[in-house]
Amino acid sequence: MTEPVSIALLYPELLGTYGDGGNATVLAQRLRWRNIPAKVIDVHAGEPIPGGCQIYVMGGGEDAPQALAAQELRAGSALVDAVEGGAAVLAVCAGLQVLGQRFAGQDGKSHLGLGLLDCETHRDDGPRRIGEVVVAPDAELGLPDLTGYENHGGVTTLGPTARPLGQVVVGHGNAGGDGSEGIVNGRVVGTYLHGPVLARNPALADHLLSSVLGPLDPIDDPEVDALRKERLHAARHPHMHMPQLSSGWRRLLRGN
């Protein structure tokens, strides 16, 4: 009996706003479909983070839960130790911000992050960045275009040692003025894409899995291929995917 690969889902009740638990489901299922046993461990606030998991997943959340999550993470060294021990991390949205050096809270005050990623997040007065995103990933990652949905108020600037996950083709991403999206440091990947990101981008899921498990067999993904085609097209041609005007007007008049 081989030990199942452990995927820790950190603080789902604090950082799980946009179906982020789905990323853990995707990772576990892609292993099971390859006959590799896998299990997802939910880690709730107030519980210690288990060492020895292969992958840690964090999602997005509102300001107050985000600050609470950062506080919990900084109280111990489990996540930093795990990364040093070779574990991979996927951090989405608020999760990305928490793993940086510093991030801004709702009061405008700056909070200390975990420092696993060389970036800082502040806020500007602009509207939240919401909508479909297409990203051309960093060539070294060898991934196809990434598709996702973003919804955040933060502006993330990368530090001198940071490498972005890719360049924004459609959408805002880090919104720091350099056109970058996300940030990668070894096996730690941060991104503003949810949707959840791994459901729409199985190549990124397999990239994370291979980074800790070595090469993996390919999987046929017909449903995902169809979705990717549709979403990439919708992002590049948004007008073609708006609800039809006539039914839109009908709905407006009916008030729903």
């Binding site: 179906g19 982020d20 489901t25 949905y149």
Partner: peptide
């Protein structure tokens, strides 16, 4: 995922 539904169906994963 119309306006009245919310434009983002990521909740499907919940």
């Amino acid at each position: 995922a119309g306006v009245a539904d919310g434009r983002d169906p990521s909740w499907l994963w919940d």
